[in-house]
Amino acid sequence: MNIAVCVKQVPDSWAEKKMNGGVLDRQGVDAVLNDLDEYAVEEALRIVEAHGGNGEGGANTITVISMGPERTADAVRKALSMGADAAIIVTDAALAGSDALATSKVLAKVIEGGKFDLVICGTESTDARMSVVPAMIAQRLAWAQLTFAGSVVVDAGAVTITRVTEAGVDTMKAQFPAVISVVEKINEPRYPSFKGIMAAKKKPVEIKDLASLGIDASQVGTAGAWSTVVDATPRPPKAAGIKIVDDGNGGKALVDFLVVKKFL
């Protein structure tokens, strides 16, 4: 079984984010592996561990795929140190400002170039917060789409998931190949071990640019984006509210506030 895991490098969730000319300023903040993608890496590891492993002589491979600037390699390294086998990074100056359509186009192209049975993604990147890239990849490849998985079971070339969303819980099944996204309740991602960190340094990382994928630069980046930012403005910080310490009448004061605000 060959599994691809799509991971994205994102600004640290805790860092203050700033816009610069309509795009996120990624320079000034620490970049980390999108924490929701750690669950995708972990799930891939658990699937292969249940099916003979991916160690030397194991029948399975896990390839990490990421599109982003050069320093994306740091996030990819973390996935490798958790236990993935190899990585493909797509990096190209022309990719800056890509929308989800372009991102999914590039990722689908990389996936097409390998012999993957499963692609596993996180449900959302913590910066873009669109939750659309996995569905778009599935659509582009015309593969089965099994997203928002709260559990994944792989058996004899078929995969069954429970899809957990606000619309309830569905059980879905498909034959390989399939694109899966996993929710954060699915597992507890492992910490890379010292051995894992050392081993990751020797794992193959292939760097690709657009030309090597046969994608024209005009189809991606700001040039190929089919939505354009008209303007982006910081919102005024919220005016400081009222803060009281409960002296035995806190509940009453709260009700008075609701009355003044016409909620009652």
Partner: peptide, 23 residues
């Protein structure tokens, strides 16, 4: 906008070659 609605929008954007804005 919901898990279903956003995925649906993403797939339609791919299939019709249209721009997408979520949320």
């Amino acid at each position: 906008s919901s898990a279903f609605g956003k995925e649906l929008a993403g797939c339609i954007a791919v299939l019709t070659d249209s721009g997408l804005i979520t949320d």
